[in-house]
Amino acid sequence: MAKEKDPFFVGWGKIPKDYKVFLISLTASIIAVFAILSYAISSTQSDPGDGALMGLTTAVGILQADPYPVLHVISSGRYQPGETIILSGGGKRGVVKRAAGFDGQVVRAAGVTMQRGDLNGMQLRSGKNGLRGDDTGADAFTVRVENLGRWRLTGEICDGKCLNGAMRPGRGLAHKACANLCLLGGVPPVFVSSAPVEGSEFLLMADANGKAVTEEILKFTATYVEIEGEVERRGELLIFKISPETIRLAQ
């Protein structure tokens, strides 16, 4: 009688009957709970946004090397004349070196297009296939530059390639190290403002002199920050010329 009343399990022995029922239901419920939690976690993942790779294209345009290489389109099968495209290379690389010799010149760029909202990007093919001087005599124009004054913006510093659709999601704290690797590799940093500035929430970042600003911002990528600086519209792209000493974590 004592045996039935006081069951005891020993690993090498037989599992007592009372335990068996308990264990079978426990096993079933643990698996069921795991399935439910799995569904709950996976079905409520945040939307990574609309950034995406959109296939190959070519564009002829005016290359601007500073702060980071961008192309102001003259003609393209995909882009409207006047549109501005942020340029990057394969993997976590920028095209700073390749673009340096072409500053202000008309070039032909080819690669994979990326798009997120009104942010245009292109991952150039390697070598001359991706970027070369254009000799077809396309009509260059003067890129319109407009100073929009001094702003204090809150938002997130991202790498302009992953954000643009090379990764989904391509922002946030889990992605911080990856964003830093992209920036270190020369990918242009893009500021995602929490409130649109003159209609756009994406701003290419530069230092106060309009030059590259990578080193100063690595610490602050992927977090919610507040930054002051001059905003300038160049072509269709906003440039945020920040004062790096004003960056602070926002609430």
Binding site: S38, S42, S43, R168, P169
Partner: peptide
Amino acid sequence: VLIALVVVYIIVFLRLGTPAADFTRPVD
């Protein structure tokens, strides 16, 4: 049981839960 636990978890996550999530475009 342990293997079943992991297999069930991963399959539900990738095949059932994720397709039900509200994504503009799929997560990588």
